[in-house]
């Protein structure tokens, strides 16, 4: 269980805003082993989301090194990078980001479509997932017909369907009430016990406590662990 999943070595991200150079992430050093459950905490603008996006390879660090499963991401081409995250990373968002025009079942199925998985196999995988999250009865509903908690369940199901090694969750409970939030956190703990590595950004102390490791960020720097 102590395989190294990813490591950040003095990773930074700066952007130009007008004539100012803004440092979003400042020389982050971070090792993540497989099977960890990490919470990123910090006030708005401290760089939690940016760090998640960069780890998820949706954004890139502008300086320093980033190694994922032994591969140097910082020197990879865009194409290989996206291959990597499609293969190993699942995303969960605060605003769920389900496709409004697709049903629950179709939303969960979408990542499999892009992996060119056969129809019969897709059906089996989606059915398992629906079963596991207890949303079989909702499979033909559209996102707008679900409560927030249910939508987030679908979001997580969609993130899990391609069997990622790492789940990145950006404020997964931010739009939910505390009971729904708790349920989602319970689910994360369960997944973590099954071996999925999870990194979540959160404001809530109680949610952060589900994690095995809490990292505090301020102004783009890690201030404590």
């Amino acid at each position: 269980m102590n395989t190294k999943l990813l490591s950040l070595n003095l990773a930074s991200r700066t952007v130009n805003s007008g004539s100012n150079k803004v440092t979003l992430l400042d020389k982050i050093d971070l090792q993540v082993n497989e099977g960890e459950f990490i919470s990123l905490m910090g006030p708005s603008g401290s760089g939690k989301s940016t760090l998640l996006n960069c780890i998820g390879m949706l954004d890139s660090f502008t300086g320093g090194g980033y190694t994922f499963l032994g591969e140097p991401v910082h020197s990879m081409k865009e194409k290989n990078r996206s291959k990597l995250y499609k293969e190993y990373i699942g995303f969960v968002f605060q605003a769920y980001h389900l496709i409004d025009e697709l049903t629950v079942l179709e939303n969960i199925e979408t990542p499999l479509l892009y992996k060119n998985i056969k129809s019969s196999e897709r059906k089996a995988l989606v059915a398992d997932m629906l079963d596991r999250f207890n949303i079989v009865g909702k499979k033909d509903l559209f996102p707008s017909q679900l409560s927030g908690g249910q939508q987030q369940l679908v979001g997580i199901a969609r993130a899990l369907i391609s069997k990622p090694r790492l789940i990145l969750a950006d404020e997964p409970t931010g739009n939910l009430n505390s009971k729904q939030g708790e349920e989602i956190m319970e689910l994360f703990s369960e997944l973590n016990k099954e071996g999925v590595t999870i990194i979540q950004a959160t404001h809530s102390e109680s949610n952060a406590a589900y994690a095995s490791r809490i990292i505090h960020l301020l102004d783009g720097k890690i201030i404590s662990e």
Partner: peptide, 10 residues
């Protein structure tokens, strides 16, 4: 949004 989700889904 849909484009984003689809891109992230692969």
């Amino acid at each position: 949004k849909e484009v984003g989700v689809r891109k992230i889904s692969g």
